[in-house]
C-alpha cells in the first residue's frame, strides 16, 4: 500500500517565486505561464497489513511535516490534483540519499517498521494558458525543471 503526503508551504514560497520569475522574465514564458506552485511529495510504501492508513498517515506527517509553516494532504494509493494546473513530478533517477536517510530514520529510530520504501519528489503545478498545456509543461520541465543527468519528470494526471 502507498501513502502519499503532499506538503506545501503556508508562508510565501521563495523557491516557487524564483522559478516563476526565471521562466517569465528570463525564458520567455510570460504570456503562457499564469501561475506556478510547488509541493513536496513523499510516497511511502507501507505494509499491506496496516489497519488504519489515515491514522498512520497522520503519525508519519508529524515526523515529515513542519506544521508551523507547512500544510499537508494525505491520501492512500491515488494522487488527485485540482483542475486548472498541470502537475509535473520531478525526482531523482540516481540514488536519493535523503530518501534513504528518511527511511532509515523512520524505521530504525522512530519505530515505523511498517514503512518499506520512501520516495521523495517535487510537484510543480503549472497554470498554463495554452491549447496544449501538457506539451508546454513538458517543454518547461525539460528546459528548466530538470537536469536529465540526475532528474526525471512525469506529468501527473
Amino acid at each position: 500500500m502507498k501513502i502519499n503526503l503532499r506538503i506545501w508551504l503556508k508562508i510565501p514560497d521563495a523557491e516557487a517565486a524564483t522559478v516563476k520569475n526565471t521562466l517569465v522574465r528570463r525564458m520567455g514564458y510570460g504570456k503562457v505561464l499564469t501561475g506556478l506552485e510547488r509541493e513536496r511529495l513523499f510516497a511511502l510504501e507501507v505494509d499491506d497489513a496496516v489497519e488504519d492508513p489515515p491514522d498512520l498517515a497522520r503519525m508519519l506527517a508529524r515526523e515529515l511535516v513542519n506544521e508551523n509553516k507547512e500544510s499537508y494532504l494525505a491520501s492512500a494509493e491515488k494522487l488527485d490534483f485540482e483542475r486548472g494546473s498541470v502537475p509535473v513530478k520531478v525526482g531523482l533517477h540516481i540514488e536519493d540519499g535523503e530518501a534513504e536517510t528518511i527511511l532509515d530514520r523512520l524505521r530504525n529510530r522512530l519505530g515505523f517498521s511498517m514503512v518499506k520504501k520512501v520516495e521523495r519528489s517535487v510537484i510543480w503545478k503549472l497554470k498554463l494558458d495554452s491549447d496544449d498545456p501538457e506539451k508546454l509543461a513538458r517543454e518547461i520541465a525539460e528546459v528548466l525543471l530538470i537536469n536529465p543527468h540526475k532528474d526525471f519528470y512525469e506529468i501527473l494526471r
Binding site: 521563495a14 524564483t18 522559478v19 526565471t22 528570463r26 528548466l144 525543471l145 532528474d151
Partner: peptide, 14 residues
C-alpha cells in the same frame, strides 16, 4: 539564488 531548484540552475539563465 540560495541553490533554489538546483545548484547553479537559476543563475545559468541570467
Amino acid at each position: 539564488y540560495q541553490d533554489r531548484l538546483r545548484a547553479g540552475a537559476i543563475a545559468s539563465k541570467e
